[in-house]
Structures are given as C-alpha cells and as structure tokens.
Simulated scan of single mutants.
Amino acid sequence: MTATLFDLTFLLAAPFWALMIFVPKWSWTQRIAESYLIILPVVAIYVALMIPTLPELIPLVTRPELPALAEFMSTDVGATLVWAHMLAWDLFVGRWMYLEGRRLNIHPLVMAPVLVITILLAPVGLPLFLIVRKVCDATNRGAAVVTGQ
C-alpha cells in the first residue's frame, strides 16, 4: 500500500504542475492555481502516513539526529512520508511562483524553466525565481525579459 501512496502522491501533484507550465495563460489554470486546495490531496496522503508513525516521528523532528533520521527515511513509509512532504511543499511554492509570475506578467518562456527546476530541485528553483521576480518587479515589465519591449 505504501508504494501505491508513493506513486499516487506524484500523480496528484503532476496535473497542477502541467497546467502551470504548459497552459499558464488558460483562464482555468489561474482559477485552479488560486485555490490553496490543490495541495490538499498530497497533504491527505502525508497525514494518512504520518498519523500511524507519530510516536516514531515526533522524536525525529523534535530532536533530529542524522543516524535515526536516515534509518527512518530508509523505510518505505519514511521515504513516502518525506516524498509527500516534499511534493506538497514544492507544489505550494510553485503555485505561489506561478501566481506571482502571472501578476508580474513574466513571460511563460521564462517561468516554465523556473517551474521545472522547482519541481526537480526546489531549493534551487525558489532563489532563481526570486531573482527573476526582482528583475521583473524592478522594471515592472516582466514580459520585457523575453520580448525586449
């Protein structure tokens, strides 16, 4: 069952990423991304896995030690729990980045690679977006980054 939840976690997040990357200007993409609810399916999987492991998990997060955390994450449940945590947080951050990009009118050809990097390597994608955002916000002409207008 844990393997199924692992797979399902990605399948629940991927459609939202696809909308933000491939059809960012579609009116339904904006409506869907404006809802915080898009992360709830992934969060539900996290909670379903977390509740039975709370006695083991609480000491790991309140007094983290590398060997104990590594041992927990090497289990199917531990890896799936961390995966769900990562995907929920990445989608939440990616959603914010998408909405900010739309607000600043950052060209989709700039935002798409930033969002892809965020899916794959969120700790790199976020600062990259913050740089893009700063440049576009400073000029208040996000489209100028690509179009030169």
Rank of each mutant, 00 (worst) to 15 (best):
A3C: 00
T4W: 10
T4F: 13
L5E: 12
F16W: 12
A18G: 13
L19M: 15
L19E: 02
L19C: 04
I21S: 03
I21L: 08
P24W: 06
P24T: 12
P24M: 08
W26N: 13
T29S: 06
E34N: 12
S35V: 01
Y36H: 07
Y36F: 08
L37D: 14
L37Y: 11
L40V: 07
V42M: 12
V43I: 14
V43Y: 06
I45E: 07
M50P: 03
P52T: 08
T53S: 15
P55L: 04
E56Y: 06
L57W: 10
L60H: 01
L60E: 04
R63V: 10
E65W: 00
L69T: 05
A70C: 00
A70D: 07
E71W: 04
E71Y: 06
E71G: 13
S74Y: 03
T75Q: 04
V77C: 04
G78A: 08
G78L: 03
L81N: 09
A84Q: 02
H85Y: 07
M86V: 14
L87K: 10
W89R: 11
W89G: 09
D90L: 02
L91Y: 08
L91I: 09
G94F: 08
R95Q: 11
Y98R: 02
L99M: 06
G101P: 03
I106S: 04
I106K: 01
I106A: 05
I106Y: 02
I106P: 02
P108I: 04
L109V: 09
P113G: 08
V116S: 04
I117W: 00
I117A: 13
T118P: 01
T118C: 09
I119G: 02
I119F: 13
L120M: 13
L120D: 05
L120Q: 02
A122C: 13
A122K: 06
A122G: 12
V124S: 06
L128N: 01
L130N: 10
V132Y: 06
R133D: 12
K134R: 14
K134T: 14
C136N: 11
C136M: 10
T139F: 12
T139A: 14
R141S: 11
G142P: 03
G142N: 08
G142K: 05
G142S: 07
G142C: 05
A144K: 03
A144W: 11
V145M: 15
V146L: 14
T147V: 12
G148C: 11
Q149F: 13
Q149K: 14
